[in-house]
Nucleic acid binder design. Structure first.
Length: 441
RNA sequence: GGAGGAGUGUGCCGAAUGGUAAGGCACCGCUCUCGAAAAGCGGCGGGCGCAAGCCCUUGCAGGUUCGAUUCCUGUCUCCUCCGCCA
């Protein structure tokens, strides 16, 4: 959520953000005008309401000592007036609150303006895609031949996009999670296992709602509306709300959280995409980092670099080639100020971007995403801190993927496959797995 | 699921039984000091307003009243006990 004062002062910047982020027609620039209009109405009504309240307080004060029938009837009139104005004020405020949630965060000045993935800017590339002197297998062939993945029974049990990890495949996923957790703990992060069946408010806080409702699973129990929970698609959701409605102390910042959780995604908008294998699935495991720090743009920028560096560090340790993309405005989420995605090389990944008669084999696939939100989320979640100068400010928030599996398994399996059909385990992972290779049993 | 108790401003404590949220601790600034402590003064929720200032804020939502922390209804959370389950 933006500061209403910012919208009053810079309506054009907000409108530009709506356009640049490719939000129309879901969100149109007219919401800005509508907000300014409601804001004006709201302030008029507040003035009226407060004038009456003031009269009421003065009257009540004088009625403390003596009271006449006449004064009491004046009081009744005031009460009547309030009963007309306040519901109207409340109605306006509710509309304003609702529409304020539709307004996106304004991107940084140096974010490339663009409409899709072609407009992202490659910030840097690390490693070289491996060359294979034997017939390449994709992750499904590898997984099935080594009995570490079962997609057919996965879809039997869980439907489309279902999968089983088996044997060393299952051990590998847990090992990766522990590897990621340990690394972050060593860097001073607080390891967390958060609830992922969360209240709607949490999804509003992160900015997943109101825009992304259809992507999130909804659950009911047999009682009332207030018992609705949603399954979080990332531990960012519960972690970002951990300090909801709290006032922290500047000396407590930064807060660095590492959340391990299962993640659930409906993938409603991507029925035809990535239908093969375990690239795009409805449930997976992930360690997500969430940072809360002081209200300082430069510090947020630095955090975004630092968080991205952590992801790069693990990809390097895992021996996986990758590239870092500075995301363009059209590829950013509504809350974001600045965002890097990391794409990891997947040797057997097929993309639609190749020529029709010459399908391209091997592609970078998104495995990590780091975002700076400034105070967009903290305004929604109402997370503030008391600064050293005594003032109360909203924290800045960021998040980043540490490691997400099974998608990362695609890169690990395909990049590290060997001529004999086995898969080599990167050195960094061996202590967490207890084996150095996955081979046919 | 049943019974009882509790929830007060920004972190902590806490007063006010129908007259409009006292006070203390913590924190920040200033004075004093070589410095610190102590002491004193001011600040330390949200909103409207150029400002003076005003309005709101006792878990939440309603109701009664000229006036509600206080009375009534609903509801959430926590605690204790019972039941059920792991």
């Amino acid at each position: 959520m933006l500061d209403i004062q910012f919208i009053r002062d810079h309506p054009e910047k907000v409108k530009k953000a709506i356009i640049d982020k490719q939000l129309p027609p879901r969100v149109n620039v007219e919401v800005v005008d509508r907000i300014l209009e409601l804001d004006k109405k709201r302030r008029d009504l507040i003035l009226q309401s407060e004038t009456i309240r003031r009269e009421r307080n003065e009257l009540a004060e004088s009625l403390k000592t003596s009271r006449t029938e006449n004064e009491i009837s004046v009081g009744r009139t005031l009460k009547q007036k309030l009963a007309e104005i306040d519901p109207e004020l409340k109605r306006i405020e509710n509309s304003l609150d609702e529409i304020m949630l539709m307004v996106p965060g304004v991107p940084a000045d140096d974010v490339p303006i663009g409409k899709d993935e072609n407009d992202n800017v490659v910030a840097r590339t690390w490693g070289k895609p491996p060359k294979f002197n034997f017939k390449l297998k994709d992750h499904i062939e590898l997984g099935e031949s080594l009995d570490i993945l079962d997609v057919n029974r996965g879809t039997k049990v869980a439907g489309f996009r279902g999968y089983f990890l088996k044997n060393k495949g299952a051990l590998m996923q847990l090992g990766l999670m522990r590897y990621g957790f340990d690394k972050l703990v060593a860097k001073g992060f607080t390891p967390m296992i958060p609830p992922v069946l969360d209240l709607p408010r949490c999804f509003i806080n992160t900015g997943h709602f109101p825009w992304g409702q259809v992507d999130v699973y909804k659950t009911f129990d047999d009682r009332e509306e207030q018992n609705i929970r949603h399954l979080a698609g990332t531990a960012e959701v519960p972690l970002a709300s951990y300090h909801q409605d709290e006032v922290l102390s500047e000396s407590d910042l930064p807060k660095k959280y590492a959340g391990f959780s299962s993640c659930f995604r409906r993938e409603i908008g991507s029925y035809g995409k990535d239908t093969r294998g375990i690239y795009r699935v409805h449930e997976f495991m992930k360690i997500e980092q969430v940072i809360l720090d002081v209200n300082d743009v430069n510090k947020s920028r630095q955090w975004l670099e630092d968080l991205t560096a952590i992801s790069e560090e693990i990809l390097q340790e895992l021996g996986l080639p990758y590239r870092v993309l500075l995301m363009c405005t059209g590829e950013m989420g509504e809350p974001q100020f600045r965002k890097y995605d990391i794409e990891t090389w997947m040797p057997a990944r097929q993309t639609s971007s190749g020529e029709a008669d010459k399908p391209s084999i091997g592609a970078y696939g998104e495995t990590h995403s780091a975002s700076a939100m400034l105070d967009f989320q903290s305004r929604r979640a109402n997370i503030r801190y008391k600064a050293k100068d005594g003032s109360t400010k909203f924290v800045h928030m960021l998040n980043n993927t540490m490691i997400a599996s099974p998608r990362i398994l695609i890169a690990l399996w395909e990049n590290h496959q060997q001529k004999d059909g086995s898969i080599a385990i990167p050195k960094a992972l061996v202590p967490y797995l207890g084996f150095e290779v996955i081979e046919k049993s």
